[in-house]
């Protein structure tokens, strides 16, 4: 049963992420990325990390993809992306080789059975155990992550909220010359 679920989830995830990477439409890419995130949370449930699966659903699918789709309002999402790709097979071979190298490097100590488990929690379900570990051993990283999220929120508001009253879509007819030149400050 676990094998069937694992293989279904893996094939679906790989297919959806391939659509994300290879599609030339932004909306297709974003939708398949969101679906892949949902199925990855299924993989987390399969591993036994229940709370991580729920957090994946809430944060990735609920927050990050919603943020992307709100950001999509600023960009022209309907037209296809024209890209000139010089040598695609070389990119595939290089990407695969680099990724395999990373996986071998980082999983060699794990395969070598040298890792000892440090934080055992017995007699608690997964969310309880996560709470116990997170608020004892990992309290300071938790607080630092909270500060990091606050800083990111302020940065996002300041970056995106500046000059919100300028329309983006009607801008091209009015100032044709502004868009052709690059990162020049407006007077």
């Amino acid at each position: 049963m676990e094998q069937i679920a694992f293989y279904i989830f893996s094939v679906l995830t790989i297919g959806l992420f391939l659509v994300t990477v290879l599609s030339s439409n932004v909306l297709y890419a974003m939708t398949s990325l969101a679906a892949g995130m949902v199925i990855i949370s299924g993989l987390f449930f399969l591993v036994g990390a229940d709370f991580l699966g729920v957090v994946q659903l809430v944060v990735y699918v609920g927050a990050i993809m919603a943020l992307y789709s709100f950001g999509m309002m600023f960009f022209d999402a309907t037209k296809d992306i024209k890209e000139k790709n010089t040598n695609s097979y070389l990119v595939f071979a290089l990407g695969g080789m680099i990724a395999v190298m990373f996986v071998v490097i980082f999983s060699a100590p794990v395969i070598g059975e040298n890792i000892q488990a440090t934080y055992f929690v017995t007699g608690a379900t997964n969310p309880q155990a996560v709470g116990l570990i997170l608020f004892t051993k990992y309290l300071i990283p938790f607080e630092v992550a909270a500060i990091m999220l606050l800083v990111a929120m302020i940065a996002g508001i300041i970056l995106a909220g500046k000059k919100m009253d300028d329309s983006l879509t009607t801008r091209d007819e009015n100032h044709e010359e502004d868009t052709t030149f690059g990162l020049k400050d407006e007077k």
Partner: peptide, 21 residues
């Protein structure tokens, strides 16, 4: 996941500024 969330917030703000320019 926390790093990814903050990366998306800052990065999307930067993308919007870049698209405006």
């Amino acid at each position: 996941i926390a790093v990814a969330a903050s990366e998306v917030a800052v990065g999307l703000g930067l993308l919007i500024v870049l698209y405006k320019k």
